[in-house]
């Protein structure tokens, strides 16, 4: 059940990204281009997502186990540090260059666009560099 639920959640997430327009880099860049011909649609993606998710996530914060029996694993970190800010700023620059963030990148990987494959390989490399730097810092 845990595995089936995980697969269905991923599937639904991908369908949501496609329907929302998040999987179209041109639309994402039009959303980020507030000084140009601005397409505000994607602000509504976040509104819709949070409106639905806020109830279940609030519930989850008070649980020790999930409905299917997994331990509830919510992030415990609280600190507002330089890594969080620096990393997020860096991510935003990459997002602004190509209009692709990790969820849509994976979702469009098998749609036959070479650009998606190049982007995902570079993204995996970026994550690999992070792991490399981290293991060097804390061997």
């Amino acid at each position: 059940m845990l595995k089936l639920n995980a697969f269905l959640a991923g599937l639904l997430f991908g369908v949501g990204l496609l329907l929302a327009g998040m999987a179209n880099p041109t639309k994402v860049l039009a959303f980020l281009d507030v000084a140009g011909a601005w397409d505000p649609s994607l602000a509504l993606v976040m509104v819709g997502a949070i409106a639905i998710a806020i109830g279940p996530l609030t519930w989850a914060r008070r649980q020790r186990r999930s409905v299917l029996g997994n331990p509830m694993q919510l992030p415990a970190r609280k600190e507002l540090d330089r890594r969080l800010v620096g990393g997020s700023l860096l991510f935003g620059v990459g997002w602004g260059i190509a209009g692709i963030c990790p969820g849509p990148a994976v979702t469009i990987l098998l749609t036959g666009h070479w650009q998606a494959i190049v982007f995902v390989l570079a993204m995996l490399a970026g994550m690999g560099i992070f792991t490399l730097l981290e293991t060097r810092r804390n061997p």
Binding site: N5, A6, G10, L12, V15, L17, A49, I52, P56, S66
Partner: peptide, 19 residues
């Protein structure tokens, strides 16, 4: 976009509530 967002929220809810 609103409907797609709602599906994304539903998927995230399914994953946290179930898994």
């Amino acid at each position: 976009s609103l409907a797609g967002g709602a599906l994304i929220g539903l998927a995230a809810s399914l994953f946290v509530v179930g898994n």
